[in-house]
């Protein structure tokens, strides 16, 4: 299954503009930035009921995000990919960037998470069968602060698992292993939760800490980004 990102067709359009006059350039700018959905299938409505049929019809990488403690749920569409980092955007242009199942950046949601450094064997960032998950790992969370690096919060996390269970995300049921990740660093403690497909290591649902100002974000993966 190919779940491309939103801007890929637009890039093609821009590439074409250089050899065919200026008009396509202008069209591309307006198409990509001013009305980014103009060239795309209509995203499943936030207000209306999200169905699996609509998601399939949409045909793009899609996640559902909700700040813990708030009622509003947002659909975010995969719009850019840099290396393995995928940026999802809501209709209000709020961004969530993910590396695999790990949230590594947020924008416009309050208290931006600038970036996250992870270990090379971080199973949240790189899809890994659950049997191979490490017990501990480290991360650096970067937030706005003085200097180019901002404020870095380094944490050490320990992973524990519990009995397999079943979750349903928009009409699809997954058999998953819940993992609890307890992280502790200088002056901060938080606990992330991941519901992970046992065989593949694909994280379908998670509750992740994105900073002291915002707290946690719930992520449901409705359609994962994939290059397959």
């Amino acid at each position: 299954m190919i779940r491309p990102i939103l801007a890929a067709p637009a890039l093609g359009l821009l590439a074409a503009c250089s050899s065919s006059g200026t008009s396509p350039v202008v069209t591309a700018i307006k198409g990509v930035i001013l009305s980014s959905t103009a060239e795309q299938p209509e995203a499943p409505s936030v207000g209306g009921k999200v169905t699996r049929e609509k998601i399939e019809e949409f045909g793009l990488a899609l996640i559902r995000g909700r700040i813990e403690g708030e009622d509003l749920t947002n659909l975010l569409t995969g719009t850019a990919v840099n290396d393995q980092y995928v940026t999802y955007i809501s209709s209000f242009r709020q961004n969530i960037t993910m590396l695999g199942g790990l949230v590594t950046g947020t924008r416009g949601m309050g208290g931006d998470l600038l970036a996250v450094r992870n270990d090379a064997n971080d199973p949240i960032a790189y899809i890994t069968p659950t049997d191979d998950w490490p017990v501990t790992l480290t991360r650096d969370y970067r937030f706005p602060g003085v200097g180019p690096s901002g404020d870095t919060l380094s944490v050490t996390c320990s992973l524990t698992t519990s009995a397999a269970t079943v979750i349903t995300i928009v009409e699809v049921t997954y058999e998953v292993t819940p993992f609890t990740e307890s992280c502790e660093g200088y002056g901060v403690e938080f606990t992330n939760t991941y519901f992970t497909e046992t065989d593949t290591g694909q994280i379908w649902q998670s509750l992740q800490w994105i900073g002291e100002k915002v707290g946690y974000v719930n992520i449901d993966v409705l359609e994962p980004y994939s290059l397959e």
Binding site: I5, A7, R93, D112
Partner: peptide, 14 residues
């Protein structure tokens, strides 16, 4: 809250 509002345009590599 700081940083609340419209996020930036994402960068896509050529």
């Amino acid at each position: 809250p700081s940083d609340f509002g419209i996020g930036p345009v994402p960068v896509n590599p050529r």
